[in-house]
Amino acid sequence: MQHSVASASSRRSSSIEARTASLSFEYAQNTAASIRKQLPSTLCDPQVAIICGSGLGGLADTIHEAPRFEKSYAEIVHVPLSSVPGHEGKLILGQMGPKKLPVVLLVGRVHFYEGYTMDQVTFITRVCRCLGVTTMIVTNAAGGLNPNYNVGDIVVLNDHLNLAGLVGVHPLLGPNADDFGTRFPPMSDAYDLELRRMAHQSWRALSLDEGKRRIHEGVYSFVGGPSYETRAECRMLRLLGADVVGMSTVPEIIVARHSGMRIVAFSLVTNNAILEAGPRGDDPEIRGMDKSQLEEYLSRGRANHEEVLEAGREAAKDMQALVRHMISNFPHEE
């Protein structure tokens, strides 16, 4: 009798897990269906989605004026709302480039540090897959850990460190959503090599390599936030191989790859992380400083969100030109 009860309990548990996984697909499908029924036929099959990070919402200006569909996240069923300045929180569908490629623009994102679950953080990525998106372009603002990077430089990501995921805070945690992808998706090829090559080709074609801004390839480290990293944490991340650090992108990348999408991702370096150790209390240099002088001395290089947004505004034109040129050279799927 006890064995029978245990077996029944196990079956119920398995059934609940399967239902939980299928709900993820069902909710995304429902949201995609509610969007699609409002679209003109020319926008019903978007091929590319672009996530616009902090200060990069101007990418919305790269699409044609018409046809155009725009909705606030607040008007879309199941989609969580962002509370972060610089993230407008709206979805735009339109056409981009001379080939009039149908695209989805996600102007703003939600973050794990806002109190959302990883499922909520990545939900809109799954909606994009249900809309038919096969390629995702992800942008973000990030702190530069590599001393060769300057503020305003752009980094094409070629790998990542998912520190949160390594300790269990992972977007694929729990029952697998089989409708999207396999239980154990590989991430060694997460950043599409052909698309990365295209990014560099576009940069040269636009003669952006002749300007003050440089393009690099590097590794992105995902941290939970919302506080910026300490000096010791920055040194640790650099020693682990990270070139830039930020509070987004990697969960979206993982879910997109789980769903079979191709990925190219860009970080805009908005501040240089402080790698050197902070001043010691017994440092002879600070002995005669008053309180305001001590504060100024300690605050050198300190990151703040306003600087992140300002760097984003200054680099927006080059980022927009790069993405637009890439889109112009995408093959148009029939």
Rank of each mutant, 00 (worst) to 15 (best):
D290E: 11
A277K: 15
A277E: 14
A277M: 10
E276R: 09
M247C: 12
L275M: 10
R302D: 12
V250C: 09
A256K: 06
L275P: 09
R235Q: 09
V244H: 00
R257V: 15
L239E: 07
R257E: 07
G301V: 06
G246V: 01
G246P: 06
N271D: 12
G281M: 13
G301H: 03
G281H: 13
D283C: 07
R300P: 06
S292Y: 05
V244N: 00
S248I: 06
A277Q: 12
D290I: 01
V269Q: 00
V255P: 13
V250Q: 12
M261K: 09
A277T: 14
P279H: 15
E252A: 10
L268M: 03
E276W: 02
G246K: 01
L268Q: 04
I254M: 11
G246A: 08
G281E: 14
D243C: 01
L237M: 11
D283P: 08
A265I: 10
L298R: 15
R287Q: 15
G288F: 01
Q293D: 14
A277C: 08
V255M: 14
V255N: 12
G281T: 14
L275S: 07
S248L: 09
I286W: 05
D243Y: 00
S299G: 11
T270F: 02
L294E: 08
T270Q: 04
A242H: 03
M261H: 10
L294N: 12
R238M: 05
V255H: 09
L298K: 15
R287W: 05
G241D: 08
L239R: 13
S292F: 05
L240P: 11
L294Q: 08
L294D: 08
S292M: 10
R238E: 06
R257M: 07
R302W: 02
G246S: 09
S259Y: 05
S292L: 05
L268E: 05
I263A: 07
G301S: 05
A273P: 08
D243L: 00
S248E: 08
L239Q: 13
G260C: 07
R280G: 15
R287N: 15
P284C: 07
P284V: 10
I263G: 10
I286Q: 09
D283E: 12
E296T: 14
Q293W: 02
G288Y: 01
N271H: 01
R280S: 15
R302I: 05
E252V: 07
M289A: 03
A256S: 15
G288S: 10
S267W: 00
N272M: 03
P279G: 11
N271E: 03
E285P: 03
V269H: 00
A242R: 01
D282Q: 10
M289P: 10
R262L: 06
M236Y: 11
E285R: 11
I253G: 09
T249L: 11
G288A: 03
S292P: 00
M261Q: 13
A242Q: 04
L298T: 12
L275R: 04
V264N: 08
M289L: 15
E276G: 05
N271Q: 02
R300N: 11
L275W: 03
D290A: 02
S299F: 11
L294H: 11
S259R: 04
R235Y: 04
R302T: 09
I263C: 14
D243P: 04
R238I: 02
L237P: 12
Q293V: 02
V244S: 01
R235A: 09
R300Y: 09
L240D: 06
F266D: 11
N271C: 02
N271S: 04
A242F: 01
V269S: 01
